[in-house]
Design a binder for these strands. Sequence first.
DNA 1: GTTAGCATGTAAGGAGTTACATGATTTT
DNA 2: AAAATCATGTAACTCCTTACATGCTAAC
Lengths: 194, 194
Amino acid sequence: MLGLLHGSPMHGYELRKRLSSVLGAFHAFSYGSLYPCLKELLARGLIAEEDPEPSPRARAGRRSRIVYRLTAEGKDRLHELLGEAGPTSWDDDGFGVRFAFFGQTRADIRLRILEGRRSRLEERMEAVRAAFARTRERVDSYTLELQKHGLESVEREVRWLNELIATERQRDTGTAGQPRPDETDPGHQSTSNA
Amino acid sequence: MLGLLHGSPMHGYELRKRLSSVLGAFHAFSYGSLYPCLKELLARGLIAEEDPEPSPRARAGRRSRIVYRLTAEGKDRLHELLGEAGPTSWDDDGFGVRFAFFGQTRADIRLRILEGRRSRLEERMEAVRAAFARTRERVDSYTLELQKHGLESVEREVRWLNELIATERQRDTGTAGQPRPDETDPGHQSTSNA
DNA sequence: GTTAGCATGTAAGGAGTTACATGATTTT
DNA sequence: AAAATCATGTAACTCCTTACATGCTAAC
């Protein structure tokens, strides 16, 4: 939520829609948790109500939408969270959220997160492969097929991470002094950029 | 848990280890939920305590391990659950569990579950692609890359399902009268089978 | 005989959902 | 003006985890 509000001020209802679309693959939140969360962030001073700009046509008692914006403290906390190491940044959700806001993250931290995620996946692969070897003869072929598919998915993600890491390194060393604001896109093939 | 106990009677501690290895990719359970669950299944009569076989060396008050076995009612309930249609059988967890016990599931139900999962994934892909087209120009390249990777993962699973479905259909029509207990393995490439 | 790991259990609490309640704005 | 949808919020509940408490069994 802090990450989305960093982009632009928003009200809760829209926040939820964006949450579903940006993090849709990982997680969505119901209003039952979203609004209490906004409340707490407000109490902690990380976000603030945008005062309703006194535009010509605005009615006095207009209190339907409540637009929140990120405070300076909120910005600090956001970058603290995005840069945080540890288990929370390696699991599916934690990594996904951090990656989604890579655009607002320092290059060295990006690299650390990508590498952390890769190590974690490699550990998991080793564990699965070990269990694989141990139980190979005792499980039916469906279980085997499932495990194989899972393993290949993880292998695929590791290859993806390798590409991203290579691209990050290249950008780091190759264009040290000349930041290129565009061209942030790591080796893509088809998606037409506008 | 019913599925694992269908394989062979077990005590809670071991049940948890198997749960982690079979469903590891999807979910693991802590003892704090496992033992209460066993208790409830016992109360509902779906499992029963295996009476400690009076082996020569067994002491009287031996109450360290409690081995549970599936009752007839438990077996019924298991097959009812595995064959159940609806959302619970299409999400990641639900499908994973059902697939893991395909060996104990009727062929027509297997097919229905595979096809249900495929439809669900295809719906999701359509939704993501739509969001993709809508927001393409407004998101940074990292978000785009993430969505692309997610989409490709789903596409990969759909291809996997297609293979499985084809294999199921083949087995259904091709070898109607002659069940081949081995050769259950659908078109695999590398894994050496013992 | 003491440490390490097996084995069972419970109580407190975190995190999020569902279902409900309410009102404002836009569309038909 | 009715219906749909936008928008905010709360209370009860579900599900699971963490942390703790307890004893057994095997190894050194």
